[in-house]
Amino acid sequence: MPTTAPAFADATASDSALRRFLFGLPGVDAVGLEARAAALGTRSIKTTAKAYAIDLAISMIDLTTLEGADTPGKVRALAAKAVNPDPTDRTTPRTAAVCVYPDMAATAAAAVAGSGVKVASVATAFPAGRAALDVKLADVRDAVAAGADEIDMVIDRGAFLSGRFLKVYEEIVAVKAECGEARLKVIFETGELSTYDNIRRASWIGMLAGADFIKTSTGKVATNATPANTLLMLEAVRDFRAATGVQIGVKPAGGIRTTKDAVKFLVLVNETAGEDWLDPHWFRFGASSLLNDLLMQRQKLSTGRYSGPDYVTVD
């Protein structure tokens, strides 16, 4: 796959060309965007639709632990949960991936081996991204070498906010080259980009640079995934495919904790990007506690009783 879609090759020819391109994108009206996201949030998803949505959401989770206190034991437990989320019900789908720091990637890879669950590793001096490019690339190399199937990189928000868009772009291109077979998720840290216009521009930089996924946030700042910023990114991948034929995934991460929230995001996917994205290959949730809530709701649907936290596993 070419790193830059041919339709937009000119856009990244120079810093000024890229700036012109990004500032030529249609603006975003915040109130209208949020109103649309909220309106889709009022969809009432019941019975069969809810069952479908819960299983789909479970299968889309990048089950995540990104703590300084992570240990091989913690990661193995998480991996076990990803492979077998509900020990009482073997029909429960597996999560899409486990998401860990690079130094835990090998542990995670061993733990999920043969299950189909992918190993995602954050890299590029996650979460701040404040390191020299060769350090970031080494980080990526390590993770891939350790068995990561997917790399979650962070963009250089400093460069973005100071207007050096081509630097942001080129860094993504370089990381992508380092990924090899691994799929690349590009994290914008939307809470730091602050405006919807910036999120739209960042989305296009990421897509032009060859991202396989665009991802909202690290989970490490105050504001992470919201229905509105995810809706905006879904519009971006929709428009990008319409223009280039290239499909790109979306991953909201951080702050999605309940089944109700997850279902709302799936409604956004369904009615914005469309059903082609209703697939773990193209949409992910970066989450940890969400899984247990989905499992409890799943139990409720199958038994008719409300479940409780003691009936799902704590990992």
Partner: peptide, 13 residues
């Protein structure tokens, strides 16, 4: 005209 929500959490304008 929409005002947006300056100062609210997250991306708001």
């Amino acid at each position: 005209h929409p005002t947006g929500a300056l100062g609210a959490a997250g991306s708001s304008y």
